[in-house]
């Protein structure tokens, strides 16, 4: 195996006409151009999330989140059952009639309530990362994914999300999951069908306070 490595590397340095350098200086460039300018973080994030078939709600503070989750599930005639990340343990869920458990989801759990590390206005995308108490499956297995997005965590572009990770988390977590709306496929006759293997619905609760 190490022979294969040596031979592949030798082939590359031969093709490139020099021995493999130990260090390489990056070409210095300005920030990469964005696809579209972000004028207003929150409004643009919400508009672009809608374009990805996410739905949104906006509430004043964290205390209002359980009511917003209940409202969404009831209006959509969805089961009031599921799992949530433990970071929301202190909120009053029971008063809203919600049976959300703080655990990793089973395949038949109906709703997964998660937070997010940050959200990206350029595309309307969420960034969740893995870790203890941050079940990745909670945003994947249940057919409804509800994510709580504090306004203060909406950044302009993906590069800023990476910068935030470097400053707040340090080393990159095992999994970064950028989520842009419900799962979908167009593999049969180029017809877009929402709800392929992952969630059929992504609902974002944008929290101002």
């Amino acid at each position: 195996m190490s022979d294969a490595r040596a031979r592949i590397l030798a082939r590359m340095s031969q093709g490139l006409g020099r021995p493999c350098p130990d260090t390489v200086a990056r070409v210095q460039r300005e920030d990469a151009p964005m696809a579209r300018q972000v004028v207003h973080h929150v409004a643009d994030f919400i508009a672009r999330a809608h374009a990805l078939q996410s739905t949104t709600d906006r509430v004043a503070d964290m205390a209002a989140v359980p009511a917003a989750v209940a409202r969404y599930l009831r209006t959509a005639h969805l089961p009031l059952q599921g799992v949530m990340w433990p970071q929301f343990a202190d909120l009053d869920w029971v008063a809203q009639g919600l049976a959300l458990e703080m655990r990793a989801p089973q395949s038949d759990d109906r709703t997964g309530v998660t937070g997010c590390f940050c959200a990206i206005a350029e595309t309307g995308t969420l960034l969740l990362h893995s870790g203890v108490g941050l079940s990745a499956a909670a945003s994947l297995l249940p057919e409804t994914h509800v994510a709580v997005v504090p306004v203060a965590r909406i950044v302009t572009r993906m590069e800023q999300a990476f910068a935030l990770l470097r400053s707040e988390v340090g080393s990159v977590p095992r999994a970064l999951n950028f989520i842009s709306g419900p799962s979908r496929t167009a593999d049969i006759e180029q017809t877009i069908v929402i709800g392929a293997h992952g969630p059929r619905r992504v609902h974002l609760i944008v929290v101002d306070g």
């Binding site: 990805l52 655990r103 990793a104 893995s130 870790g131 203890v132 941050l134 079940s135 990745a136 499956a137 990159v172 977590p173 095992r174 999994a175 970064l176 999951n177 950028f178 989520i179 842009s180 709306g181 419900p182 799962s183 979908r184 992952g198």
Partner: peptide, 17 residues
């Protein structure tokens, strides 16, 4: 829809990966 950046193995104490 999904961009996943995957690094290394499951964190100790984490429920998936």
């Amino acid at each position: 829809n999904y961009v996943s950046v995957l690094t290394g193995t499951r964190d100790p104490g984490a429920s998936d990966g």
